[in-house]
Design a protein around this nucleic acid. Structure first.
Lengths: 110, 110
DNA sequence: TTTATATATGAATATATGAACATATATAAC
DNA sequence: GTTATATATGTTCATATATTCATATATAAA
């Protein structure tokens, strides 16, 4: 146990490849558009691309590009129905991560 | 309670400014160098700049630039002693966030 | 089977970002 | 005071990234 009372990280420094993967993972959350999509899928799973772009007031292509990234990082899944594609979240960790981030940001404003 | 059994996020979509702040916050973790520094400060608080750059095999200036960012985002603190500057972590959330990220990355490799 | 709609993709462009180099500053050693 | 050491900062350059525009694809409607 280290001073932070943790079992997971302890004194272990991730190796180079792990650091790279970790950075890639966090990078996804470092963009407003992607965060917005994730929050929207939280409150309403199975949301279509057009609805996302409507709510976010952004071009459909911009949304599709970001969804592609979220898909490749396996943070969302989709279901095709005719010409519609419905997206949903695909990772339990997202929830925890967004919560901690929100807590941090909210505390920072005090 | 939403389907993810959460009290914190629920159906609430952060407003534009919150999304911006949140993205800024996560962006910090989206870089290998900064992650490495954070992990090193985890395992050894009160680490000097030279030691960091030695261990990481990177130019001291590159480390200083990243430390500046970490300082401004209040993720690290420092203590000056003569011409040495010792850095430490400054946020409990970092620990949780890094842990969740590591879990995600490790699971992704299976 | 032509037209409309939903979504995806490729290319171009603008902006952001990280590292290197040069240099500044501050303190310690001589 | 001069030199050496530790750290910080400004600038430049290469690269990464997000958005837009144009277009492709696939399915539904007419």
């Amino acid at each position: 146990m280290n001073i932070y009372n943790s079992k997971e990280i302890d004194e272990t420094i991730p190796v180079d490849e792990e650091l790279t993967d970790l950075a890639e993972f966090f990078k996804i959350f470092g963009d407003k558009t992607r965060l917005h999509i994730l929050f929207l899928l939280f409150s309403k799973p199975e949301t279509g691309v057009n609805e996302l772009s409507d709510v976010m007031s952004m071009h459909q292509t911009a949304i599709s590009h970001q969804l592609k990234i979220l898909r490749h990082m396996r943070l969302v899944t989709y279901r095709k129905e005719g010409r519609n594609v419905f997206y949903s979240l695909n990772d339990q960790h997202i929830h925890d991560i967004l919560n901690i981030g929100m807590q941090h940001v909210q505390e920072a404003q005090k």
